[in-house]
Design a protein around this nucleic acid. Structure first.
Lengths: 197, 197
DNA sequence: CCGCACATACCGACTGGTTAGTCTGTCCCT
DNA sequence: AGGGACAGACTAACCAGTCGGTATGTGCGG
């Protein structure tokens, strides 16, 4: 633990990850050089390769973190003690809010996933599927109860909603007229209205 | 018009554009080298730089083509002689079908737009906004007529729908269970159901 | 109807610049 | 004195774009 915080409060690995996240989101993964990352983080290549095996590992860490967070939150909302339509609405709104609050991670996630090597990509996809499936189960539960329409396959509904979540990083601006909560309310509303039986 | 079709039916410029589109979609813009493109197209760098000013021009051409196509189709559907909900449904479904039929263009469009230089990016965004506004006008028309709910701002509804269109390139597989038309019907349905007053 | 001038359509070696990752060394803490 | 935490020069591989060259066709004066 020698120079780990070296002139700055946050430890080097976290600082590198945060810097890389910002730069990846701003310029894209390929356009961001390792040199740029270490300079912006105030260290050198030696430090980066001391903590991370490769540039790609950095990218994977971004994914791992965001996936962990979202899965935890979804599980909490989906497993709550409330009617299924309320639970779905809460979960749908929450993923919008947390996505907006981490827009950098989101744009990296959706724009740079294909930069990962096949094996790491597979790993991320598997995690992603778990999330997708939990969400789908919620919709199917409501359909079975007769609360939601069965006109559209649950799978497609999930993709419909996540399409809009995905899209947030393209159009949402923090200085725009809508707060994250307002956007979340609207999008959850649209989903529930589309689903009502 | 010397060797323009050189052993192949299609002229060199189109062949280069088609090859580049495929490779950009498969590997991303940055991961695709000019050398790779010309080899796959069966020509050399000399030919590519004879017809295109830069690698970026190739990318911009992909955008220009897809934007032109979609704008034309939207204008046709939006300006048809039918009730507003029917026109919106048709337009919404059509953009899904044409997006699926040109999935390569779509994934490039949504994943590589930030690779364009600021000025070209601005140009593409302006075109994109025209499209967005035409679609929004359709929704506002329905809202004014009382056919669509005014609970959600029209802008947000447009982004909601295009989020799902955008997302298609992530999950849609031609060998999956749903035909492009079926997906289009479902997605248009969801939109109309979310909007009904 | 010939042959010369010019243009278009390419070829492919080369250049200048960039990049991820390596490796040897140094400093400091324990 | 030994090891974790870095520093920074170095390397090997690429890559976009250039440039001088060649081949084929086209218009035109004689």
């Amino acid at each position: 633990m020698a120079r780990t915080t070296d002139g700055n409060g946050t430890p080097v690995p976290q600082r590198l990850l945060a810097t890389a996240t910002r730069l990846f989101a701003e310029q894209g993964y390929d356009r961001t050089s390792v040199q740029e990352i270490v300079e912006a983080a105030g260290v050198t290549k030696g430090a980066l390769y001391h903590y991370f095996g490769s540039k790609e590992d950095l990218l994977q860490e971004v994914y791992a973190r965001v996936l962990r967070l979202q899965q935890e939150r979804l599980d909490a909302f989906a497993g709550a003690d409330a009617p299924v339509d309320q639970r779905l609405r809460d979960a749908a709104a929450d993923v919008v809010v947390t996505t907006i609050e981490n827009l950098d991670d989101a744009s990296i996630f959706f724009r740079s996933m294909h930069h990962l090597s096949p094996e790491k990509n597979k790993q991320v996809r598997a995690e992603r599927r778990r999330y997708h499936e939990r969400f789908r189960a919620l919709i199917e539960e409501g359909q079975a109860e007769g609360v939601f329409s069965t006109a559209t396959p649950a799978d497609l509904v999930v993709d419909y909603h996540f399409g809009s979540v995905h899209h947030l990083s393209t159009w949402y601006r923090p200085d725009g007229p809508l707060s994250p909560q307002q956007v979340a309310e609207h999008l959850a509303d649209l989903l529930l209205r589309a689903l009502r039986a």
